[in-house]
């Protein structure tokens, strides 16, 4: 499974239960869409660290890295390279 599919599946399974997955475009802001809140971001961080074997530093907790599927994929790719 590629990174994008894994991230999408995680978001859909954990934060969008019962909602239409089609409503989440890869560029959508997860905050503006009300998909994650402050604890949701921490859960997302835990998932990314465990699943992709990366360490997310506190200074990386910014929307530019984590606030959409596309941004998360780019961030994970950068950390893994």
């Amino acid at each position: 499974m590629d990174i994008k599919t894994e991230v999408r599946n995680f978001l859909i399974d954990n934060f969008m239960m019962g909602l239409d997955p089609g409503e989440l475009a890869d560029r959508d802001s997860l905050l503006d869409k009300g998909i994650v809140d402050s604890t949701g971001v921490l859960e997302l961080v835990g998932f990314l660290e465990e699943n992709f074997e990366i360490k997310i530093e506190d200074e990386d907790l910014i929307p530019e890295n984590l606030d959409s599927v596309d941004k998360i994929v780019a961030y994970v790719n950068k950390k893994q390279s």
């Binding site: 402050s38 506190d58 910014i62 929307p63």
Partner: peptide
């Protein structure tokens, strides 16, 4: 209200 990103 973006406290989800405390550094922001």
């Amino acid at each position: 209200s973006r406290f989800a990103y405390p550094n922001v």
